[in-house]
Design a binder for these strands. Structure first.
Lengths: 123, 123
DNA sequence: CCATATTGTTAACCAGCGTTAACTTTTTTG
DNA sequence: CAAAAAAGTTAACGCTGGTTAACAATATGG
């Protein structure tokens, strides 16, 4: 498995959020979602292609490869799980969103599993 | 208050760890502690001076300013608190150390307070 | 269908934060 | 006290991941 960075996972997740929302997988939307410039998204898509996570041709929308979708859904799952957990701790919606974006990419699998157990046990 | 980055907080915390251990506040020790080169530490100390967190003269050891010591102890406290918390969750020593280094700088005050309560309540 | 808005792209650039190499200063030790 | 080791410094450089400016391609509304 090639190495992904926090930044690259953010872009992949952003595309995945569009996908979940049934929105077009456009760079401009990711640009607005992440508050970065369109060229930044463009560069990230090239890197995502290089890593084999998405396919696209110039001026087309992106589409996930199987590997890309797998990683994206994993990051997304981490995000929603950690957010649920922070909300359960009593953290405000705003800070839960903010914090889980920052930690979802770096937590070890072990720690994430512990958190996941605490959340699902509650359902 | 001037803006600190994760990196700069890491260096400040490393010096503070030496201080707590009653070791000399030498760049070479920080270099080994953080696994970075001595020039990297040297650059960081200049930035820490610029930010008003430490004082030093060429070839001298550093010393904390009041502001520097305040920030350093805050970061250190976050580190130990988050680590205790992760251990309480059942995370291994190794991953607790790893993870809290990565998240201690980014958690919102609100989230940290919630975690802190969970740890101190147990004492 | 054409003018306009939006999206995608490329190029040039910049800041943060690390590296190695080579040198200076300080400390240690035989 | 001299030589060697260790610490501190400086310079040149690289990578990551952003930016703005300018332009090309596409979509859209009168």
């Amino acid at each position: 498995m090639k190495k992904t960075t926090k930044s690259i996972e953010d872009y992949l997740e952003a595309f995945y959020i569009l996908y979940k929302n049934k929105e077009p997988l456009e760079s401009a939307r990711v640009s607005r979602l992440l508050n970065v410039s369109r060229p930044a998204v463009n560069k990230a898509t090239h890197e995502l292609m290089r890593l084999g996570f998405i396919n696209k041709t110039p001026y087309s929308e992106i589409e996930f490869t199987p590997a890309g979708k797998r990683i994206a859904s994993k990051v997304y799952h981490r995000h929603t799980t950690i957010k649920k957990y922070l909300l359960k701790l009593g953290v405000s919606e705003k800070n839960a969103d903010r914090d889980c974006c920052l930690i979802e990419h770096v937590l070890s699998d072990e720690t994430f599993k512990k958190i996941e157990e605490l959340v699902v046990d509650k359902d």
